[in-house]
Write a protein that binds this DNA or RNA. Structure first.
Lengths: 196, 196
DNA sequence: TGTTCTTCATACTAATTAGTATTTTTTATG
DNA sequence: CATAAAAAATACTAATTAGTATGAAGAACA
């Protein structure tokens, strides 16, 4: 990777971490260049505005991560019910990067940015739709394979799962304690079993 | 109501509306006093800091609203399953104040403030716990009345319902379209029926 | 090696921010 | 009505904000 490309990536990664923990609005460019040890000139060479950098984080950090960790595994899934539980459980309880206190990066950005920034909304919508579509396809496949009841409506379930996930992530932020995840997961498992 | 008390209430109400639509951090005191037509002197007479005002909004606007519209009705409920559906459905589809685009005021504040402001966290936790407790009690009552299966764990269900609500509110912000609520509600009804 | 384009560094600006100091007006009460 | 306290108005400050102007290194290539 060229030195310039490396500078750009460093900015995106460090800025993403700051934004994940502090929020987008409250993360200043001065703070980003201080923690990355990149000068303002370098920053504005790579990104015309702060918002352009924000969208780049979604495109170049969040989307690829999403693809690797959730989309691809779900596409391989034969038994979606069990795999959904494992995926959500892993995300909530095991993932080494995500922290209870700071919630879900995608959920956070959606909450903060989507009502008044179109570029963010579009990028986030794409990302979320990709996840949703993958879940829907997995359920349909599960129905064909006899793992999921035929009267289940895949789109409804996809919305329900993703909503629950975002919601419990927000709950976690409030309580700052993984125990809420445990309680949630128990009911989540029960719900998933009704789809079998 | 005294003129001073009226000034205070006006500030809280208008500030709440601004914060609901724009977020807390991005709502400036200058903007609040501009829309309320109250001077800075008056603002700082009533509130020592911006954060003090923020907490006052939770205590004096959100909590009473919550109590009137959700807690009290739920406490009266005989058949919680049906009433939960109606309550959430009303909130999502009918409530005249809440807008898809702006999500849930409590969820928004939690998302934005809880990781780094303790005063906000505490006030919000109290509020949410009150709602949660009310739901739990309603389920227990429903179990005694034969409306809810005995093997249902009330706390799990309460978390599951509230999470789903917060999550779909966030989804709504992203899509800015009530149709996501409709899809959600269909699955929500199915889920609730499994508790009968 | 000299030149050109890419990448980065430095110093600045104008606007906005929360909050303060001080004075003036309004209200309540004797 | 006089007076004191409550409530509000005005003008300010210091810090922070995103973004800019300009020039200096660095790399690529003739």
């Amino acid at each position: 990777m060229s030195k310039a490309a490396n500078t750009r990536l460093t900015i995106l990664q460090k800025a993403f971490e700051l934004i994940y923990t502090k929020g987008y609005q409250t993360t200043s460019i001065d703070e980003i260049i201080a923690t990355t040890k990149v000068t303002k000139g370098a920053f504005y060479y790579h990104f015309k505005t702060k918002d352009e950098m924000g969208v780049a984080i979604i495109e170049e950090i969040l989307k690829p991560t999403m693809l690797e960790n959730f989309i691809k595994p779900t596409e391989k899934s034969q038994n979606p019910i069990d795999d959904f539980y494992n995926m959500i459980s892993y995300l909530l309880m095991e993932d080494p990067f995500l922290q209870v206190k700071y919630g879900c990066p995608v959920g956070n950005l959606t909450q903060e940015m989507s009502p008044w920034n179109n570029k963010f909304s579009e990028a986030l919508t794409e990302l979320v739709n990709q996840w949703k579509t993958t879940i829907i396809k997995a359920i349909e496949k599960g129905q064909n394979g006899g793992f999921v009841r035929k009267d289940v409506v895949p789109e409804q379930v996809a919305f329900f799962i993703l909503s629950g996930y975002w919601g419990i992530r927000n709950f976690g932020k409030l309580q700052n304690d993984k125990s809420v995840y445990v309680v949630y997961l128990q009911e989540f498992k029960k719900y998933l079993n009704t789809l079998k």
